[in-house]
């Protein structure tokens, strides 16, 4: 049984290759993103075509500067692509919105709000009443094992706890899409694994579509249904790999490590290009 089936050798997976019973949820088509910098232009993304189906867990993988966060921010609506379109549920993305919950690496919790207030904030914006918010917040506090921290301020929490709050805050909105920008990047290995397990549990329970940016190969294999490897500048889709390992995944298994080796070769090549360009940039400046 093939453990990793490349969907397409070319950078862009064709729509036909993805066509099955699944319903397309996020459709990125013909997206370029260019940034103007003094004395030139950076092509962060080029010719990105990507269809993510409902309920899929997709990891965007690549070295620094490959545009994976840029792509996530474009889907989130924080910065519009220079050309091309992005639709979520058939609607063009123009602004950020509560239908696409975002989890940031820096947590981005509001430090002046307690844990419970942070989680309730999105619900208050929605215009829900206190009586409706209270049970929802309690449920999320329990789900993410935060009940005893409900009245703490973020500064009194560990990184792992803060990220649990950030996830709870997004879950509160019941958004069908969850966008995660290296959410576990700053955590120690043990905390990271337990949050990864937590995330998988939440994902299986809620059926959300998750787009997860990471530079950790191991993390992407552990989590994703599909890994999209991006190239370093311009950011294009290098490979789109379906991960068919059974869950829960065993990072010590042979199949896991075969895939890891394969991805490692792909990512390392981009990392080398990244280093070459950065070093050249430093020496010519």
């Amino acid at each position: 049984m093939p453990i990793a089936a490349p969907l397409a050798a070319s950078p862009a997976p064709s729509a036909a290759a993805l066509a099955d019973a699944a319903r397309p949820h996020i459709v990125v088509s013909g997206v370029d993103k260019r940034f103007v910098i003094p004395g030139g232009e950076i092509v962060a993304l080029k010719d990105i075509d990507l269809t993510i189906n409902e309920g899929e867990f997709v990891c965007l993988l690549g070295p620094s500067g490959c545009g994976k966060s840029t792509l996530l921010n474009a889907i989130a609506g924080f910065s519009a692509p220079t050309t091309g379109t992005i639709t979520v549920d058939g609607r063009a993305v123009k602004d950020p919105g509560p239908d696409r919950g975002m989890v940031f690496q820096e947590y981005a919790l509001f430090p002046w709000m307690t844990v419970a207030q942070n989680i309730a904030f999105g619900l208050e914006i929605k215009g829900m009443s206190r009586a409706q918010i209270e049970p929802k917040v309690n449920e999320l506090l329990a789900m993410l094992k935060l009940a005893e921290f409900r009245d703490r301020f973020p500064k009194d929490l560990s990184g792992g706890m803060r990220q649990r709050v950030a996830i709870a805050r997004v879950l509160a909105l019941d958004s069908p899409v969850m966008l995660m920008d290296e959410p576990f990047g700053a955590l120690d290995a043990l905390t990271r694994r337990s949050l990864q397990d937590e995330l998988i549990r939440i994902w299986s329970a809620t059926g959300k579509t998750i787009v997860f940016v990471t530079h950790s190969i191991e993390e992407s294999i552990y989590l994703a249904d599909r890994i999209v490897v991006l190239t370093y500048r311009p950011g294009t889709i290098k490979r789109d790999i379906k991960v068919e390992l059974p869950r829960p995944r065993d990072s010590a298994s042979t199949a896991f490590n075969e895939l890891k080796r394969e991805l490692s070769a792909l990512v390392t090549a981009e990392q080398h290009r990244f280093e070459e360009v950065e070093v050249k940039g430093l020496t010519t400046d």
Partner: peptide, 16 residues
């Protein structure tokens, strides 16, 4: 700006 981005993605209006 990350707080503002977080608030926007939670659906907050400019006034909020």
């Amino acid at each position: 700006s990350i707080y503002i981005r977080a608030a926007r993605s939670l659906g907050a209006s400019r006034l909020t």
